[in-house]
Design a protein around this nucleic acid. Structure first.
Lengths: 260, 260
DNA sequence: TCTTCCGTTCCACTCAGTGGCATCGACGGT
DNA sequence: ACCGTCGATGCCACTGAGTGGAACGGAAGA
């Protein structure tokens, strides 16, 4: 079946679980509340199917329904998701230390983990008067364009690194990483120094990120970073603080063990 | 649970979605990683069914599998859950203000919303040296035994309040709320003053909570609180700070509108 | 008023999901 | 080393849970 349809081919159904998560996945940060028609359009599934599915999801609390009939992601998912060891488990351990770092630097503090070939932002602390950051908690970000991403990529299995190098596309707001070879050298440098510095020369919001790895035993399980607007102090001044905090979290993590 | 299926005709299963969430729900804070057998036992479903379901959930990222074969909640759920307006949507707006309150008071800061007849903890800020708190982010807490719960209950629809009053069981670490009538008066008092103070005389960790409602327009959508160890200063000293912060969040919330 | 779009209900078909059974493998006790 | 136990996985005939096309009612808009 050629997928002339947006979404999935017609046919009699993918696995239900897959469909359910496709439905949940049709929400995004610009569409936190969707009417039935929106869900139908975004999933490419028949109306009746979407309605039935959405109702079942509502019944278990994965979705909630607003007064105007639109659907939104429900609290049940928050409840379940809070048990993810690599998500809130990690977060619970890291938060107090991130607080400290945030307090001392007054800059954005980010915590991210690797999920396959992408990084996923687990936590972000921001002052309301701080420079805006693009990234939302729960959002996926490319590994080659962020400080945390670079740290995670540098410490990822070789196959992930190779895919990352192969898929690398230079960003025009980054004048240090132009080629895949630059990236390769950069990753080696990050492994050697155990931290990363990424500069963005975006004229609207130039900023520099200092990132360091967080370990559970030997494995790098997350990355911590501070994002500072570039016309600020020398970013190098933040390196010790970020590294020290990352190591503190690592120690705590190794002793407590986030997994049951 | 009970051996095999209860005789009621449904030999072949509840709705699949229901089962999937029952499976996800069998994780809890003491069991963040479960082997197949654990899932089988906790759900009461047949082995093969659990395995198939768990695999499908793993395929979509709702679960992840550790090297030792155990299952854990996956990052995909965190990603989806972060779009819940009443969860991370609210959180995103409230966080900077909570940060401020946290820095000023140095005490636990809690953010909770009501979900039917319970309160659900959406965010918690804690210093590492602060007194331990029982409540985890994502956890459900009774409405009559916490500061945030009382605020939410006081501003809930009448039917919720009535169920709360009817189901009320006094806690022996609370010497101010002994009867349902105490509770009724307490709720009225909370509505009048627009804040709540709850004292716990637990000998091991006596503490006092100051809580205030957060509004989106007219509706109370959440509650904010500060938890202080009781041998501290007069809790009344925290009331203005908590109320002011709650109002600041309310204003921000009303102007930005957490829903898309 | 007429048209259009949306949410909803209904129903006969059928394939995805079911679960009992057999097999394989990993420990652990004697 | 041997055996016993338990947990994980593969297999497969059965069946009812899920499917989606069609039709209905109602609200918004022209």
């Amino acid at each position: 079946m050629s997928s002339s349809n947006p979404g999935s081919g017609s046919g009699a159904g993918e696995a239900l679980i897959e469909r359910a998560f496709a439905l949940l996945g049709s929400f995004d940060s610009e569409h936190r509340a969707l009417p039935l028609a929106g869900l139908t359009h975004r999933t490419g599934m028949p109306r009746s199917t979407v309605l039935r599915l959405a109702r079942q999801l509502t019944a278990v609390g994965a979705l909630e329904r607003l007064d105007d009939g639109r659907f939104v992601i429900g609290l049940r998912l928050l409840e379940v998701a809070s048990l993810a060891p690599r998500g809130h488990g990690l977060r619970a351990v890291a938060m107090p230390f991130m607080e400290d770092l945030f307090h001392v630097t007054g800059q954005h503090v980010l915590l991210a983990v690797r999920d396959n070939d992408e990084a996923l932002l687990v936590e972000r602390l921001s002052a309301h008067d701080a420079a805006p950051v693009r990234f939302r908690v729960g959002e996926r970000v490319a590994m080659t364009t962020t400080g945390v991403g670079l740290v995670l990529l540098a410490n990822a299995p070789v196959d992930v690194q190779e895919r990352g190098l192969r898929a690398f596309v230079p960003v025009d707001t980054d004048d240090t990483l132009r080629t895949a070879d630059d990236l390769r050298r950069g990753l080696a440098e990050i492994r050697r120094g155990d931290y990363a510095v990424a500069r963005r020369t975006d004229p609207r919001a130039p900023r520099t990120t200092v990132a360091a790895p967080i370990r559970n035993g030997r494995d790098v399980v997350a990355a911590l970073s501070v994002v500072v607007p570039s016309p600020e102090f020398d970013p190098a001044a933040y390196v010790p603080a970020v590294r020290a905090t990352a190591r503190a979290i690592s120690r705590q993590l190794t002793t407590t063990d986030a997994f049951g």
